[in-house]
Design a protein around this nucleic acid. Structure first.
Lengths: 159, 159
DNA sequence: TAGTTTGTTTAGTCAAGATTGAACGAATTG
DNA sequence: CAATTCGTTCAATCTTGACTAAACAAACTA
């Protein structure tokens, strides 16, 4: 039983981290970044040392260093340094998912702009192609406007 | 002037297609698929022959074939065959953007499931890690529910 | 049927970028 | 100060997958 407690379901948790890695990769991000995120999600400590992450995921210190900095740029994790401690720690950033969602709105805005740019290139007023771009622009403009509203509603509901 | 009409702003349109290609690539999709989509967006004809796309984008028939089939799987374009015509044509699928948005909801659902799976792995009831996953699951569950509502509102507004 | 004109498939090339390992620098400890 | 323990950086490797070109298949034409 002592062994069981020490293990603490590591195997399945590592598997979970791998799952998140694959999901991340499917979204066009580095798999290792997803693995780190996945591990942080199920590690039952307030924060984790970079080095431990490398060991647990069987990865090099280098990739952990690089990918954790990527996750920081994305606003999903943050660094924690403890006084009188040599090691660096990372943890999930509280409220990071809302922040992630906010960046989705930005992406949507970029697509709206793209459609607008396309519209400028159409010289004929013919409805065929113009309609398509207008539909695209309108949808993304709509979403761009509604995403923040949605986010606000969720934040309110959360309390 | 004749030349100008024939050209029809091809240069800037090709540039636009390239832009969409880069945007697509940034989202983790093949650049060529984005280029095709981009060209369809600004080509002022109801449909375009596969072969013409290959020529205009300076790409091989092979990649156009493969990537247009990818775009079809994504529900963004569709094939058009004309009676007594040898060539195959493609065009943007009407209403494809709404469909695309619907698939976003599916992705969100996958993330909610991931969070749920993670929660199953936590044996301690300690709030530290559990809270994080609960927040994640709640947000995605919320979005999963609200996306279709949003879409419905847009469709209604559109008329 | 033979000859074209198309799209598809497949093997191969190539580039991008994820990952590693080693060298490095900074900070800490004895 | 020497030794240790970290994280970071960088060159090298390796893998993935986009893309091409050529062979192929299918549909049409004469």
């Amino acid at each position: 039983m002592a062994k069981k407690t020490e293990d603490d379901g590591q195997a399945s948790k590592r598997h979970f981290a791998e799952d998140v890695g694959l999901t991340f990769e499917a979204e066009g991000m580095p798999r290792m970044a997803g693995r780190i995120l996945g591990w942080l999600l199920v590690s039952e400590t307030p924060h984790v040392a970079l080095q431990d992450v490398a060991e647990i995921l069987h990865a090099s210190k280098g990739s952990i260093s690089t990918m954790s900095r990527l996750l920081m740029r994305m606003g999903l994790i943050e660094r924690v340094s403890l006084p009188g401690e040599r090691r660096d720690y990372i943890r999930l950033k509280p409220g990071s998912w809302s922040e992630w969602f906010a960046t989705e709105a930005v992406k949507i805005g970029a697509l709206r702009q793209l459609a607008e740019h396309g519209l400028e290139l159409l010289e004929s007023k013919s409805s065929v192609s113009r309609d398509r771009l207008v539909e695209m622009r309108d949808l993304f403009a709509f979403l761009e406007q509604e995403y923040p509203v949605l986010l606000e509603r969720w934040k309110k509901k959360r309390r």
